[in-house]
Design a protein around this nucleic acid. Structure first.
Length: 403
DNA sequence: TTTCCACAGGAATTTTTGGAGA
DNA sequence: TCTCCAAAAATTCCTGTGGAAA
């Protein structure tokens, strides 16, 4: 008996809904694509190119458009000139220094068995290895730095990389750097010399409106699902939810995919609006669970402290009391507690991840100014997620006992 | 209008962790 | 095993904040 069998049901070609799928037609971006194409044309003509910085909010088509154009450029330049154009795609999501970026570029070029480790090399050695790898590719290379705004103030490479040819760091390879940023004010925060190197040409992608989202989702749904399985109003609802948020097509596609999977699991023959609402909630919960799973032990302890007060109906709770409880919980599992200052940082991180809510109180001379916290995540779900980490088991039992 | 409270959080520094290479 | 290296986590020190009370 096989363990897995092809799942039948409402999906026809589900991969069409994935992030990696590049459609034949990019909707709602005609003018942007033409301008982008003009900036890449010098590569086709064998002329020097400028670095390009593309920015716009999440899910407005920056990545898919870049993939679409670089893929066509690779094919066309090979057909007309017999030149091999390499595109190196680096997702800078977890990269915040030039050192880490150099390591990521090396690993993009190398085979997995030759990947390097993220630390241990002197900086200059790391940069030299990166330029050697790039030079070994020869001809023309496009380096796409997706979510480049994650690279903070350590931006040496963002300045150097676009100038690598003119600075003789590369002998045999020409490179073009494309930066993609979700932060509309990214260039405002760049040092002038980095800006003039990385963002010689800029392109901004505006958010999609509900009609454009509708078109995108409908196009994909027609291929991804069997005929007639999407009930009237489902596409419009997915578009409306994502347009109402930030005009994010990725979010709309994720909700549609999840709604389809829920319908599939329940052997439903159609995807309904109710599936869409449940999909939205499930995706939100997944995000929270992922955030909890990624917390350090100290971060989990701080969250446990707030969950303790939540279970005791004593929220919102001020930071001082969170710290006192945190100390007790740390002792409870034999972990050395960190300082109050550090716990404030952890509270800030938990707030950033939408796991807790924060409000400021000020009682003047009486008790001064302080912050209060309560859980934003569903308490039962948060506790069950914490339960997956064995080290938190005694505290999870304590929290369960409060129920 | 000034003082005071209790933190909040920025900046600099130190410690810890994990990896490379001799 | 030891030294070097970079990143991340944590600590220490300090100034800033804003509203009620004086």
């Amino acid at each position: 008996m096989p363990v897995f069998e092809p799942s039948e049901g409402i999906f026809d070609r589900a991969y069409v809904l994935s992030e990696d799928y590049i459609p034949d037609v990019i909707r709602g971006r005609d003018e942007d694509i033409q301008r982008y194409k003009n900036l890449l044309q010098p590569i086709m003509d064998g002329r020097d190119t400028k670095s390009i910085l593309l920015y716009g909010k999440t899910g407005v088509g920056k990545t898919v458009t870049t993939r679409y154009l670089t893929q066509h450029l690779e094919r066309d330049i090979n057909e007309y000139h017999g030149i091999n154009l390499n595109t190196i795609w680096v997702l800078c999501e977890n990269i915040n220094t030039s050192y880490q970026l150099a390591g990521a570029i090396i690993n993009e070029i190398r085979e997995p068995e030759n990947h390097i480790t993220p630390t241990g090399y002197p900086s200059e050695q790391m940069f030299r290895m990166m330029y050697d790898e790039l030079d070994s590719l020869g001809e023309h290379v496009i380096i796409v730095l997706d979510e480049v705004d994650n690279i903070g103030t350590d931006d040496k490479l963002l300045y150097e990389l676009p100038r690598a040819g003119s600075n003789n760091r590369l002998q045999d390879t020409k490179i073009t750097v494309i930066g993609i940023s979700n932060d509309l004010r990214f260039t405002d925060n760049l040092r002038q010399k980095v800006k003039s190197s990385l963002a010689q040409r800029e392109l901004q992608f505006p958010p999609y409106d509900a009609n454009e989202l509708n078109e995108i989702l409908r196009d994909r749904a027609e291929i991804a699902f069997h005929d007639g399985v999407i009930e009237n109003g489902v596409i419009e609802l997915c578009s409306a939810i994502s347009a109402n948020d930030v005009g994010d097509a990725r979010q709309g596609l994720d909700i549609l995919t999840e709604a389809g999977e829920i319908a599939n699991r329940e052997d439903s023959e159609v995807v309904t609006e109710e599936h869409v609402y449940r999909a939205r909630d499930a995706l939100e919960q997944d995000l929270i669970n992922d955030s909890i799973g990624d917390l350090t032990t100290q971060g989990k302890l701080v969250l446990c402290s707030i969950l303790y007060f939540e279970r005791s109906n004593e929220t919102p709770v001020r930071s001082k009391d969170v710290y006192d409880k945190y100390i007790k919980l740390a002792e409870y599992i034999d972990t050395s507690p960190v300082t109050q200052r550090r716990v404030r940082d952890h509270l800030g991180d938990l707030k950033m991840q939408s796991l807790i809510l924060e409000s400021t109180k000020n009682t003047g001379r009486q008790e001064g100014r302080y912050k209060e916290y309560k859980s934003y995540a569903d308490v039962d779900s948060a506790i069950s997620e914490l339960d997956k980490d064995g080290t938190m088991e005694p505290i999870v039992e304590l929290l369960e006992a409060l129920n």
